[in-house]
């Protein structure tokens, strides 16, 4: 099968959906130039500047305007440039986008996709490295998608754009240049469907985004010692595929939850709560979590490495639960 980078796969999804539906348009900062991650480069030449709208640095207006367009017949795909900047538009995301269908009693559809380049990338430091997905899982009314491979990114972005509800679409910055197999034919991946990235029998490692790849590296190392980890990628945090996770945990009876976000109050804490509340009997060991330390992302490489979860941390956590 052919290989694409995640940036190429996302770009292909945008091209296909913009070709298919004239209501789809892009709105955000630096889209025509396609900087810094290259996803939208050349799309203005393909579709015209009316459908690839460069904005001023006005995050509240980008998201508010996307909402206004979405509830009156268009299908905006907005780009937050860096997920950190959504903090400048939290009213628009949390009070407006997430609630407008509900508080109006279902009068409007909100077909809006908000692309969120997320996570650490070497040395980007405190304002360009955060993993804020838990905030939005905690906001009823939003779908939260977080793919880890080019094929998943493409299939999930296409589904998000075609839906009638707002989607916060997290794209990990370290994965834009990562290659993976992407089918030539059209694939739409439903939201809320997990994927087992590596089968295994001894322990379930559930991980998101870049951490899926860290977990796969850890699984390779553990395999050399005869420990077979099953790596489950939920791909969507909301809606979340509890059935797939629980099936894996029932099989392995042990679980490690891995994420890049600051540990306290992160999405993994909710996953742990679901497991303990709903399938505690299936566990043969306490649930363990691997996450970032609770500080802003520091700049200096040794500091950053110390704060972020490492492959060895995952290996250690798995060894503890398999005892």
């Amino acid at each position: 099968m052919r290989k694409l980078t995640m940036a190429e796969a996302l770009r292909e999804a945008l091209i296909e959906e913009m070709t298919r539906d004239p209501r789809v348009f892009l709105i955000g900062e630096d889209l025509r130039a396609g900087v810094p991650f290259g996803v939208t480069k050349g799309l203005a030449e393909l579709f015209g500047e009316d459908r690839v709208l460069d904005t001023p640095i006005s995050e509240a207006a980008i998201i508010g305007a996307s909402l206004g367009a979405a509830i009156t017949g268009m299908r905006p795909v907005a780009d937050m440039h860096f997920a950190d900047f959504v903090t400048c538009a939290m009213d628009e995301v949390v009070n407006q986008i997430a609630k407008v269908r509900y508080m109006f009693g279902g009068q409007v559809d909100v077909p809006l996709t908000l692309r969120m380049p997320t996570g650490s990338v070497k040395g980007a430091a405190a304002h360009h490295s955060q993993s804020l997905e838990a905030w939005f899982v905690h906001t009823p009314g939003l779908h939260v998608v977080f793919p880890s491979t080019p094929a998943d990114a493409k299939g999930l972005l296409k589904t998000s754009i075609r839906g009638l509800d707002p989607v916060l679409f997290f794209e990990h910055k370290r994965l834009y240049k990562m290659s993976g197999e992407v089918p030539e034919e059209e694939v739409l991946i439903p939201l809320g469907q997990a994927d087992v990235k590596r089968p295994g029998s001894d322990v379930t490692v559930i991980a998101t985004g870049w951490m899926v790849h860290q977990a796969l590296d850890a699984a390779d190392r553990l395999s050399q010692d005869g420990i077979e980890a099953e790596v489950v990628d939920p791909r969507c945090l909301a809606p979340f595929d509890k059935a797939a996770l629980f099936a894996s945990v029932r099989k392995t009876t042990r679980v490690v939850i891995v994420e890049e976000a600051a540990r306290t109050g992160a999405f993994g804490a909710q996953v742990a709560a679901w497991i303990v509340e709903e399938i505690f009997d299936a566990l043969d060991a306490p649930v363990r979590r691997v996450a970032a330390r609770d500080v802003p992302m520091p700049f200096s490489p040794p500091l950053e490495e110390y704060v972020l979860p490492q492959v060895r941390d995952i290996v250690d956590a798995v060894r503890q639960v398999v005892g």
């Binding site: 509240a60 207006a61 508010g64 305007a65 996307s66 909402l67 367009a69 905006p76 009213d91 407006q96």
Partner: peptide, 18 residues
Amino acid sequence: VVAGGLSIAAGVGLSIKQ
């Protein structure tokens, strides 16, 4: 939310234009 409607209105205007 005070001022909550202004950016939404801009988007409605954008949609009208599109």
